[in-house]
Simulated scan of single mutants.
Amino acid sequence: MEISGIISAIVIGIIIGLLGRLVVPGRQHIGVLWTIAVGIVAALLGSAIAAGLGVADTKGVDWIEWLIQIALAAVGVAAVDRAKVRA
């Protein structure tokens, strides 16, 4: 992976993490860095899942890939929030 790919993955991860956090109802007790980390992981996993399903490379915007990534980020934010509340 080239440096531009890493930088774009981080930027997309930030956006995905923030959108995932907006999807989860209520207040989350995790910081911005956790949100970014969850977003990056969700973006990478979502891209892999979308590629596996064959919906990653379409003409125009890959809406299904974005929805998968945002859903994974929402699940990740909720999971990290619950783990931090219990700890």
Score class of each variant (00 low, 15 high):
35 T>D: 04
78 A>C: 05
39 G>S: 11
25 P>K: 12
61 V>S: 08
2 E>Q: 06
62 D>Q: 12
3 I>Y: 09
6 I>E: 04
61 V>Q: 10
74 A>F: 07
42 A>F: 06
37 A>S: 13
64 I>Y: 11
44 L>W: 10
38 V>H: 05
61 V>M: 11
83 A>L: 14
41 V>P: 05
67 L>N: 11
63 W>M: 14
86 R>P: 00
54 G>A: 10
69 Q>H: 04
64 I>Q: 15
13 G>R: 06
9 A>I: 00
59 K>D: 10
4 S>H: 14
13 G>P: 02
48 A>R: 12
27 R>S: 15
12 I>F: 01
41 V>D: 06
34 W>G: 02
32 V>L: 15
12 I>N: 12
26 G>E: 10
23 V>P: 00
43 A>S: 14
77 V>C: 07
65 E>P: 02
77 V>M: 13
71 A>R: 09
39 G>R: 09
56 A>Y: 04
38 V>P: 06
37 A>M: 12
45 L>D: 05
74 A>D: 08
29 H>P: 00
28 Q>S: 14
30 I>Y: 03
46 G>H: 05
20 G>N: 05
14 I>W: 00
71 A>G: 13
61 V>C: 03
33 L>Q: 11
6 I>T: 08
33 L>M: 14
4 S>F: 09
58 T>W: 05
19 L>A: 09
29 H>C: 00
18 L>R: 02
13 G>W: 01
43 A>L: 03
81 D>R: 04
81 D>F: 01
34 W>Q: 15
2 E>R: 10
10 I>Q: 04
35 T>R: 08
54 G>E: 08
51 A>W: 08
